[in-house]
Structure formats: C-alpha cells, structure tokens
C-alpha cells in the first residue's frame, strides 16, 4: 500500500468530517511554510506524527519515503552549506578549502554555518509537508473528499474531477509497474540492473503506454458517466450526507489554535531564515 491509498480504519481521524480535515490540511501546509525556526518546526513535525499515531496509520508506509527524503535533506544541507549566498554576514565554519592559486575553482569550498542551518530548515519543512498530505488521503475516501468539496461550495463536476485525479495516481502507479514488468519480460534490463541515471532515462519509455492507457480510460469513464446521467442537473443528491459534529469543530479549533501558537512562538523565538 502506498501513502496515496486509502487505509481502512476506524480512528477518530477517519471519522472526522472531511471538510475540517481539508481546512486543517491547508492550514497546516501554510503554517509549515511560515515557520522558519527549527525548534518550532520540530514541534510541528511532532504534532504531525501525533496525528499519524492517532489515525493508526502504519508508519512503515512513510519510512521508505523518509529514507529518500533524509538523503535529500542531507543533500540540501551540503548544498546550502557550500553555496549559501543570502544573509548579510554569514558565519563561516571552514574557510576556502581550495587555495586561491588554483585556476577557475580557486577560493571555493567555504562552509557556511548559516547555509547548513538554512538547508536544515528547508529539508525539515519538506519532510513535514510530505507527512501531512498522506494523513488526509489515507483517512478520507474519495467519496468523502468529493462530498466535502461539494459541501464547501465547489461545483460537483469539478469536485468529481479533482477526486478522480487523486484516484488516478495509485492507478497510474500500478499501471507503471505493469508496463515495467512487460519491458523486463522483453529483456529490458535497466529497471533491474541499470545505474541510477540509466533508470531515470528509462522512465521516459513508460510515458507512451501510460498516457495512451490514461486517455483510453478517461474516454471510457466519460462515456460511462454520461450514460448514467452525470452532469444532467445543476444539483444532485447524495447517498451519504456529512454530519459536522461538535467534537470535529472543537478539534479543528484546537489545531488552529496550536497553529497560531506556533506562528507566535516562531515570531517570539525568531525565525532562523
């Protein structure tokens, strides 16, 4: 199961009104971008992990992505540490490794403390964002998402379009896997034994079958939906109705307060960058 599939469960987060979840998703994303103090960001990450725990979502699903992201964080830290350019007076940890006398690259190799810290903030922000999105997707069915969007005022056709696009991601992932299997079965070795760059290049070969498949499916889906009167009326009825409970409102307000608090502390402690 990927982090973009619905995870069956009966936790409070699963039962929460999708409208509240949607608003909190947007709010948390904005706040993560606003926070630039590492300790506050760490607190935000802890809050997100607490929600993961409350939702009983398997952490193993995200660990694979974490491993990749941690390597990206390390790369960002190194990159920013070596090539930090903003800030009026950055603290230098290591003076140029390459002597001035070396042509072209001489004088480079300065390691900036500010750059390392900036890389750390960027990386951690990315890590936190990647952990927020799956909470919504893994605890909210496509139907609930569509209904939530409609109840928030979106035209049901656009709501359906949005949720279909979300639904398509795991389908395309599956399809890409099948296409890769088919290529392996035709002796194409790159996906199994190729180097990183070779694999990256090989992914372009998946485009034709995936796009053709997606277009065929979209065409069929459109016809099937029209055949069942989709879009005939401006408004439509729903099998399930959403029920905004007091506890959902309270939870939403609580998380919103925490977010405001974090922004406040970020200002109080001072953003690193």
């Amino acid at each position: 199961m990927s982090i973009l599939d619905y995870h069956y469960g009966d936790s409070y987060i699963h039962r929460m009104d999708p409208r509240v979840k949607m608003i909190l998703l947007i709010l948390l994303t904005i706040v993560v971008f606003m926070i630039s103090n590492f300790y506050v960001l760490l607190a935000m990450f802890a809050l997100v992990m607490l929600v993961w725990k409350t939702a009983n979502l398997p952490l193993k699903n995200i660990i694979g992505y974490m491993k990749f992201l941690l390597s990206l964080v390390a790369f960002l830290i190194v990159l920013q540490g070596l090539f930090f350019s903003s800030g009026s007076n950055p603290i230098i940890l290591v003076h140029p490794i390459i002597p001035e006398s070396v042509p072209v690259i001489g004088g480079h190799g300065t390691v900036y403390l500010d750059g390392i810290l900036f890389g750390l903030i960027l990386g951690f922000r990315l890590l936190t964002l990647v952990c927020i999105m799956p909470i919504f997707v893994m605890t909210t069915t496509i139907g609930e998402t569509a209904l939530g969007l409609v109840k928030l005022g979106m035209n049901y056709k656009y709501a359906y379009m949005t949720t279909t696009a979300l639904n398509l991601i795991p389908t395309l992932q599956d399809e890409a896997r099948v296409v890769m299997d088919a290529q392996k079965m035709r002796g194409f070795q790159v996906f199994e034994t190729g180097k990183f760059m070779e694999k990256m290049r090989a992914y372009s070969t998946l485009v034709v079958p995936l796009v053709v498949g997606a277009m065929r499916r979209a065409q069929l889906m459109g016809v099937a939906m029209e055949a069942r009167a989709f879009g005939v009326k401006k408004t439509r009825t729903y099998r399930d109705e959403l029920n905004m409970r007091k506890i959902d409102l309270a939870a939403g307000v609580l998380v919103a307060f925490i977010c405001v608090g974090m922004v406040y502390f970020n200002g109080l402690l001072g953003g690193w960058y």
């Binding site: 399809e175 099948v178 296409v179 079965m185 002796g187 194409f188 070795q189 034709v208 079958p209 065929r216």
Partner: peptide, 22 residues
C-alpha cells in the same frame, strides 16, 4: 535470476496488450 534474463528462455505475454506496447 533477474526477470530480464529469464525472459531469454521464457517469454510472457501479459493480459492487457495496451500496457505492452512501447
């Protein structure tokens, strides 16, 4: 043995032809 190597001896035609045309 990697799949791509097995395929020299054993060819496999999957169910849906659309996913096998590149």
């Amino acid at each position: 043995i990697p799949v791509s190597v097995i395929s020299n001896t054993l060819g496999y035609v999957l169910q849906n032809p659309d996913r096998q045309l590149f």
